[in-house]
Design a protein around this nucleic acid. Structure first.
Length: 301
DNA sequence: CGGATTTGACCAGCGC
DNA sequence: GCGCTGGTCAAATCCG
């Protein structure tokens, strides 16, 4: 690293809120028919969920193309199809009645535009190495014509949290950290440590609201959460609320966010009257530890 | 000592 | 082509 950004200690936050309350928009009018028992957030990843800030609505669409950049620290105004939400709304102004202490979601290929190259690069590097033709440390492999790197589905959400790396039940290994343009906060890159699992995640703080952590998952785990497996029995209790034990963090998170029956204002853009059962308070672990052992595990000594 | 993290270097994509 | 930026690699280092 050539600059000092990575050495910046994150500022402590006087008020520590970390509520993964219901994402504000998901129950918007366009999703009135959104049935959590029939569609998971992973489905949304594949289909694309598009939030229209003007109309306060979400659209689920089958969009294989992407638009816009990863909305992380650049201005959210740059978002094209989707929005992770306005950081200022998410946390910069706690007086905002809309989304105080909230997590906001975005997903889909729309978020993942620039993620084209890494996997094929990885594969090619591996291949070259296996062929025993690896000479230099860095491989410069010619990209084969027409070969397009498969775009992994992405899932991004913003969380107001003091903790950067939120415990999600999976094990991650950090493999990189980069300074983010226009942001004093670096972006960290993590990879799932499970063999053959290619899921990655990126974590960074919003420079507009440093209390907001932006986490982006990429890909889907091909295995269950280790923590979830350990707590399978209790986790299964959650099946009374959810159709299945989620295999993916995004599923899990969504499953906690979608209401089951107490949606008092189905057409309301903002859903603030959540049943406490639908609130995630990850770092504080105040929520139903028996049901969500994976989130509690890390706190054990 | 093995696994995780740090960090400088490298590569690809993109805009100009 | 060049420079910038994001993403990744991998050696060095840290740490339990």
């Amino acid at each position: 690293m050539s600059d000092d950004q990575n050495k910046y200690p994150y500022q402590p936050y006087n008020s520590f809120h970390h509520d993964l309350n219901m994402a504000s928009g998901f129950l918007g009018s366009n999703l009135v028919g959104f049935d959590p028992s029939h569609i998971s957030f992973t489905d949304c990843l594949h289909e694309g969920v598009h939030y229209n800030a003007l109309s306060n609505t979400f659209d689920i669409s089958c969009s294989s193309s992407h638009a816009g950049n990863y909305p992380a620290n650049d201005t959210c105004n740059s978002n094209k199809d989707i929005s992770v939400g306005e950081p200022s709304a998410a946390g910069g102004n706690n007086e905002n009645p809309l989304t105080p202490n909230s997590a906001e979601f975005s997903s889909s290929s729309a978020v993942g535009g620039e993620e084209e190259s890494s996997k094929s690069k990885e594969d090619l590097q591996k291949k070259v190495f296996e062929d025993g033709e690896e000479k230099s440390k860095k491989v410069n492999k010619p990209k084969q014509k027409g070969e397009k790197k498969k775009r992994e589905p992405r899932f991004a959400f913003m969380t107001k949290s003091e903790i950067d790396n939120l415990e999600d039940g999976y094990r991650w290994r950090k493999y990189g950290q980069k300074a983010v343009k226009n942001s004093p906060f670096p972006r960290s890159y993590y990879r799932c440590t499970t063999q053959k699992c290619t899921v990655k995640k990126r974590i960074e703080r919003s420079f507009q609201d440093p209390s907001v952590v932006i986490t982006t998952y990429e890909g889907q785990h091909n295995h269950h959460s280790p923590a979830m497996l350990r707590g399978q029995a209790t986790a299964m209790l959650a099946s009374s609320l959810q159709p299945a034990v989620p295999s993916f963090p995004q599923d899990y998170i969504l499953s906690q966010m979608l209401p089951t029956s107490n949606q008092t204002h189905p057409n309301s853009m903002y859903y603030n009257n959540l049943n406490p059962q639908h609130q995630l308070q990850l770092p504080e672990y105040n929520f139903m530890p028996d049901m969500f052992p994976s989130f509690v595990h890390k706190e054990e000594p």
